Simulated assay, not measured.
Amino acid sequence: MKKSIYIFCLILGTIVNCNSQNLFSENKNSKNSNQKVTLSGRWHIDNLIEQDDDSEYYLSKSNKNSTGNHLILNANNTFMSGYSAPCGNDCFTRTYGKYTQNDNNHIRFFLERIEKSGECTGDSNPNQDKGLFFIYSDSTGTKLIKSDGKIKNDLRKVKYSALIDSINLRNQVRNLYYLKWQETSKTGIKEIASEFINSNPLLKLDNATILYSKKIRQMFTMILLKKNKKYHYLVYNYLHKQFALYEDYEDYYGYEDTRVFEPGEPDYVYAVQSTKVVPSYSEGTDNMYLFLTKNYVVPTELKKSADSEIYATFIVEKDGSLNYIKIRSDAKYGSGKELIRVLKLLGKWNPAEEEGKKVRSLYRLVFSIPLNKL
């Protein structure tokens, strides 16, 4: 979507919203359904539900006045997704269809109609089954991940999606632009990966396994490969038909737990927001940050810059100990490893609880490096 040109319309002394395309209001004529729809309501969505074969959608809560890409799930099992802006000229797309949610883990979409207006045209009635999606929620939002209906496979895809997120969230778009891009005429994920591997024999990625792929930052798709227990990230720019290997993956220290468990199993790792009782540091969050700041030794090579935050994850075990401490992003110069050292000095935590039992849970932490100690 190109940026909207915002225009304020003054009519009879009253400023009004002149975007006649912004029709995202709740469907007041929707009848109540006896089925409990846990995802019903209005959401931000990263990509519209169209004919593209998207493997994943990301949802976050939205309100009636917000703009951008939206998804509305009505209680009568119909949906509408589309793009809206406060005002101006743009290409406005709306899609309509039905959805079913037979359990708390999966949702299926059936795309019926696509409408385009503004600076684009071409209504259509695809009547396309978009397939089944696994519902995964954590403290950041909700992911809908293409599913074959098997929970264990779904959770593997959650892991693979998180691996790609660790690269996507850590780096700015400019980092991708400076990769060693190669032209390609291929468009399918398997064909793109195969062509790249064959044209770069020195990388020795033959027989690498394609684990997952997902769209990032509007014009890129990241493909996760694995060979000999090592992950590799192939980036495809579908606007310019180019691919390149992302070569900074060695700075990523891994995923929380390489094993995959199903909900209800003793070793399953819960997202913090999905538990009845969330994990907490025994002496309180404020004291935790005071302890980290006091004991953190700032690397001497680190100068004052915008890159002064460290993003970390760890598992709070059932006994309150911390395990699988991983650095998602840092400011280099060993800043992440120093945070790991200090985190290990913390005392016991109060573990998360679910249905009256202590459970393992994944905790996300953002730490600001005390640059005033330089």
Rank of each mutant, 00 (worst) to 15 (best):
N237V: 13
K190L: 14
E183M: 11
Y311T: 05
D53A: 08
S147W: 08
I192D: 11
F134C: 01
A244T: 08
S4Y: 13
G118H: 14
W181T: 10
L202P: 06
E353N: 05
G334A: 13
F133Q: 05
I7Y: 14
K159H: 00
Q128R: 06
K215E: 14
D330V: 02
T142H: 00
S60L: 00
N32V: 10
Q273F: 03
T293F: 08
P201I: 11
Q51D: 09
I189S: 11
T313E: 05
I5S: 15
K215T: 14
F367P: 03
L345I: 05
E26G: 12
L169S: 01
A306R: 03
D129M: 01
A208P: 00
L371A: 02
S4C: 13
S213P: 04
I197Q: 10
S335N: 03
N104E: 15
T209M: 10
K294D: 15
Q273E: 10
N237L: 10
M222R: 03
K98I: 04
M219E: 15
K226L: 07
K332T: 04
D129Q: 05
R217A: 13
D257H: 09
Q128C: 02
R364E: 03
E354S: 05
T140R: 00
H44I: 06
I72W: 04
D206I: 10
Y57S: 00
L239I: 13
Y231D: 04
D148Y: 01
K230F: 02
K204F: 00
Y212S: 04
S282M: 15
R42E: 10
Y246V: 08
N237W: 10
Y289H: 13
L371V: 07
V298Y: 06
Y363H: 02
I223K: 06
K180H: 09
S282C: 12
R156S: 05
K230A: 05
E355G: 05
